[in-house]
Every structure is written in structure tokens, then in C-alpha cells.
């Protein structure tokens, strides 16, 4: 095994081009577990920890360009206004120690369906900026997940940053686990209201082979909200609309039965979270105030 320690981004890309099977190492919170338990023995480890630009972010007019290795703890502290859904999700990641090391880039690299960041990215709208010595490209996050723990990266590519749309309306994130900390999601749900485009987007985690959006549910809800003039009038979402939305979110799931939860429970829990988070965010929208957390104070 060889340990590669590029100090600059171009060196990292060159190293990845030279060693396409090299495993990128960011916070180490996934890769090191695999090394410690003898599940992975790559020829090369590619440490990205020394490349400054991966640890910073830039806030533009529409998006935040979040460096791949910005730890969750920074997102919680510094970006809850711009990225409220992601900040809520970040607070449920592992433990304080893990949040000090783990990053959205790492979550995307691992592409586990249970990664906590994914639903929030899907709901907010995001593109993954990936690069190689050949150049760089932006991949819509929906297209980034290609299978269980598989993503759209080519062998020579690394994740540079994630471009996440800044919140223009309330967002929420919920995650079911059987413990109150250090728990992998049994399933998770994110919702983001986008008042400017009059759309609602969703993200579901841990309830299908990849993180997914509940597109039929979004379409139904967007149509129902438009039809009822909800965006203008500030009318409440009726229980029947919320109920149908929740059903369609559950229908978007294709969960497995495993030690963490049953198929039926995951579907059920996604529907409950969909209904509740829609309620919180829509109420927050009607009140016109906070864009975070659907009215809940989390600290």
C-alpha cells in the first residue's frame, strides 16, 4: 500500500490519473473503518486533507460552492442560513467527532444510500463538480448516484465541490434511527420549498438502492399547490393533499429488509416524515418567517 499526500489540487488529479484505483481519503470516517476491519486493501490511499481549497466554500448569488472536504461541523456553524436542510442533516451525522471530520464530498464518494447528506442535496437541488486531468464537469446530484455504493465518477475523477442551491424557502430534514445519536438512518426524508419557482423538492435516503427524489409526489404536490393557489394565498395544505403526498413519497421507496428496519416500516416511516415535514415547512412558509427547520428550534 502506498500513501499519497498531494499538497495541491493539480497534484491530486495527477495522482488519481496515475493510480486510478487509488482510494481518496478525506475525513476517513468511512474508508478507515474498511481498513481497520480488513474489508479493503487498496494499493494506494490518496489523502486529500492537505488541499486547502477543498476545505473552503464560496457563497454566490444562487448557490454555495461547498468544497468537498468541508466538515459537517462547519456547515452546521456557518451555513445554516444558506443551506438549512443540509445543516439539519449534518447535525444528525454520527457524533461530534465524526462531524469534525466527515464531509459531503466523502458522503458522495461513498454513495451509501444511507448517507445523511443525500436527501438534503436532492431536495435543495445540487450539482457535483468533479474533475480530472482531462478537465471538470458538473453532474446533477440526481444523476450522481448510480447504484448501491456506486457513483458517476470516472476512475480518474475526484470530487472538487458541490454546488448547492441557496434556500429561498423553508427546508426540513428528518431521519429515523433507533438511537438518538451515532445512528445510521433506517430511512430519512428531506423537503425544500422553492417559492420562486413555486416548486417543492424532496429527497429520500436509505429506502432504495440509491438516494432518490419522490418525483411523482413532487409533481402531485406542485400541481395541487398551483391549482389551489396556495403559493399566493398562503392557504394551509389540506390533510388530503398532505396524505396523498405522503403516500406518493412512500411509493417512491424501494426499501430492503435488513437489521436496521423492515421494508414495510421504512415505507411507513417515509410517509410519516413526508407528511410532517411538509406540514412544518408549509406552516413556516405561511408565517413568512424562518426558512429553517419548519419552526422547530434545535438548540
Amino acid at each position: 500500500m502506498e500513501f499519497l499526500r498531494p499538497a495541491r489540487w493539480d497534484e491530486a488529479l495527477a495522482a488519481k490519473a496515475a493510480h486510478p484505483t487509488a482510494v481518496p481519503l478525506a475525513g476517513g470516517t468511512d474508508v478507515m473503518v474498511e481498513l481497520n476491519f480488513d474489508r479493503r486493501r487498496p494499493d494506494h490511499l490518496l489523502d486529500l486533507g492537505r488541499i486547502p481549497e477543498l476545505h473552503t466554500w464560496e457563497t454566490g448569488p444562487e448557490t454555495v460552492r461547498l468544497g468537498a472536504c468541508v466538515p459537517y461541523a462547519r456547515i452546521i456553524e456557518r451555513l445554516p442560513g444558506e443551506l438549512p436542510g443540509l445543516a439539519l442533516a449534518a447535525r444528525t451525522v454520527g457524533s461530534p467527532q465524526i462531524r469534525n471530520r466527515g464531509s459531503v464530498g466523502g458522503n458522495l464518494g461513498a454513495a451509501s444510500p444511507a448517507g445523511d447528506a443525500h436527501p438534503a442535496l436532492l431536495a435543495a437541488g445540487a450539482e457535483v463538480e468533479v474533475a480530472s486531468v482531462r478537465g471538470s464537469r458538473l453532474i446533477p446530484v440526481e444523476e450522481f448516484y448510480t447504484g448501491v455504493k456506486r457513483n458517476a465518477l470516472a476512475d480518474d475523477e475526484l470530487i472538487r465541490a458541490i454546488h448547492i442551491r441557496k434556500a429561498t424557502g423553508p427546508q426540513a430534514f428528518s431521519k429515523v434511527g433507533t438511537r438518538n445519536a451515532m445512528v445510521i438512518a433506517v430511512c430519512a426524508f428531506a423537503i425544500a420549498l422553492h417559492p420562486r419557482t413555486r416548486t417543492v423538492r424532496t429527497g429520500i435516503g436509505s429506502a432504495a438502492p440509491t438516494p432518490v427524489r419522490a418525483r411523482a409526489a413532487e409533481d402531485f404536490l406542485n400541481a395541487a399547490l398551483a391549482e389551489g393557489g396556495h403559493w399566493d394565498g398562503g392557504r394551509a395544505v389540506t390533510p388530503s393533499i398532505a396524505g396523498r403526498f405522503a403516500e406518493l413519497c412512500a411509493a417512491a421507496c424501494d426499501p430492503i429488509d435488513d437489521v436496521r428496519g423492515s421494508t414495510a416500516y421504512r415505507r411507513h416511516a417515509v410517509s410519516v416524515m413526508a407528511r410532517r415535514t411538509l406540514g412544518w415547512t408549509w406552516e413556516a412558509f405561511r408565517e413568512g418567517g424562518a426558512i429553517t427547520g419548519g419552526g422547530a428550534q434545535c438548540a
Binding site: V176, V272, G295
Partner: peptide, 12 residues
Amino acid sequence: PGGLSNTSHGEG
């Protein structure tokens, strides 16, 4: 119940 996982604001 659920704590910081933010699953309930009192519902249920």
C-alpha cells in the same frame, strides 16, 4: 423521541 433526528415536533 428521535431527538436531533428531527422526526417529531410533538406530533404523535
